[in-house]
């Protein structure tokens, strides 16, 4: 049995694979690095699979919190793990857009699934899940309802995509001027898409484009991204666990080698 753990800034994910590369269990806990999230997610994934720790032959940890998690046998970056996980699920993938809670990445793959190039956002929160969380808070909307709110928009407004703090005060000004919440929500999604499209532009986009990470669950971001990069964007069934799946695949390869 092979364990992959992906410790992000806001969530902790884990996947267990058997030796035939079937996913035995997966877990997503909504707390990330620096919390009990990593331990909880490992406990949950073991429990779902009916396994104990000793039955894990090899484990790989990835994600923002990979350096501080001591229990894994090896640590590998989330760029390599998202690449491996995505290619396993969708071998036609050539571009991966991974938007997580605190960062955004664009990864280019070759036909063998190897990373050809990648681009990451800087330490700024614009273009990440954090930007949407801030917008949801101002709009008094639950984060998982933000996309639904956006779908009701009647017109499109522009929101700064360069800085979350600037955008926050900009949105408050828009609301004070009477702009409808749903229109602001749509503008926020568009701002994320523009920012990530700019990142993608640095290394180029080649189809098939696949989106991973928690923000892929937000349909409005996916729609806006398709418009910005002018390519169809495929969202994998469980986009949040792709990094953990990639880590589990690496764990399998370590033993299989």
């Amino acid at each position: 049995m092979f364990l992959g753990v992906d410790i992000g800034s806001t969530t902790s994910k884990a996947v267990i694979l058997d030796s035939k590369l079937n996913i035995l269990s997966a877990s997503v806990i909504n707390t990330g690095t620096g919390t009990l999230g990593p331990e909880k997610t490992v406990k949950a994934v073991l429990s779902k699979a009916g396994l104990n720790e000793k039955e894990i032959q090899y484990s790989v940890v990835t994600g923002y919190g990979r350096m501080t998690y001591q229990k894994a046998d090896k640590q590998i970056t989330e760029i390599s793990c998202h690449a491996r996980g995505t290619f396993f699920l969708k071998p036609n993938a050539r571009t991966i857009i991974d938007i997580g809670g605190q960062d955004a990445k664009v990864i280019r793959l070759d036909e063998d699934g190897r990373v050809k190039n990648f681009a990451m956002n800087d330490k700024c929160a614009a273009g990440t899940g954090r930007f949407l969380e801030v917008m949801a808070r101002i709009l008094d909307c639950r984060i998982n309802r933000l996309s639904v709110l956006s779908q009701k928009a009647t017109e499109e407004i522009n929101i700064s995509n360069t800085c979350t703090v600037f955008a926050e005060s900009e949105v408050i000004s828009q609301l004070a001027a009477g702009v409808k919440r749903e229109n602001v929500a749509k503008g926020a999604h568009k701002a994320v898409a523009k920012r990530v499209a700019g990142l993608a532009g640095r290394i180029g986009v080649e189809p098939d484009v696949v989106m991973t990470g928690g923000v892929a669950l937000n349909k409005s971001v996916v729609d806006a991204l398709e418009q910005e990069i002018k390519e169809k964007v495929t969202v994998l069934k469980k986009p949040q666990i792709v990094g953990a799946l990639g880590a589990a695949l690496y764990a399998f390869e370590m033993i299989d080698m």
């Binding site: 970056t77 989330e78 760029i79 990373v115 050809k116 190039n117 990648f118 990451m120």
Partner: peptide, 11 residues
């Protein structure tokens, strides 16, 4: 930057 450097190595 640490992630970028490590990813480059892994690449």
């Amino acid at each position: 930057i640490r992630t970028r450097i490590q990813s480059f190595k892994e690449m």
